[in-house]
């Protein structure tokens, strides 16, 4: 049995469902699946300008793994551009950092699925809650 994949921490999921090429002469042929962690890798390295080591620490994985994910992300985007394929985002092996909260009153950790509108602790109803970041984890 292969070793279990360590979950990659993703601070925020991509703000889109995908990208579609336009003005193509033929029809769009298929799509590539960009995983959340791959999007995060591109964001940390190319957008935020971090090096692989810093980015890997943020995502809770080793530097080589980080480099592999980054490599894969670039390959996928290149493939989509050259072969005019759609890019769709997929969850992958991510753990969404933002979706977990801690109650400052009773120290309960919890997530808030998007069907819950009230931003309060589910146990003590305190409004004193904070998103869990990598420093408090």
């Amino acid at each position: 049995m292969p070793r279990r994949k360590r979950l990659r921490k993703v601070v925020a999921p991509p703000g889109f469902k995908g990208y579609k090429p336009y003005g193509t002469s033929g029809k769009v042929t298929g799509h590539v699946e960009l995983l959340y962690e791959e999007y995060e890798a591109i964001k940390l390295v190319d957008y935020d300008g971090m090096n692989h080591l810093e980015a890997s620490k943020l995502m809770g994985i080793s530097r080589p793994t980080m480099a592999r994910i980054y490599e894969e992300a670039r390959k996928k985007i290149a493939k989509a551009l050259v072969e005019s394929k759609e890019i769709k985002t997929a969850f992958g092996n991510a753990w969404l950092d933002k979706s977990w909260y801690v109650c400052e009153q009773c120290h309960t950790k919890f997530n808030l699925p998007d069907n819950i509108t009230q931003q309060a602790c589910p146990l003590c109803s305190s409004f004193n809650i904070n998103a869990i970041t990598k420093t408090s984890k």
Binding site: T108, K109, N111, L112, P113, N115, P122
Partner: peptide, 12 residues
């Protein structure tokens, strides 16, 4: 649980 939008609460 995430898929079915069930809230997870962790107590330690």
């Amino acid at each position: 649980l995430e898929k079915f939008k069930i809230q997870m609460v962790i107590l330690d």
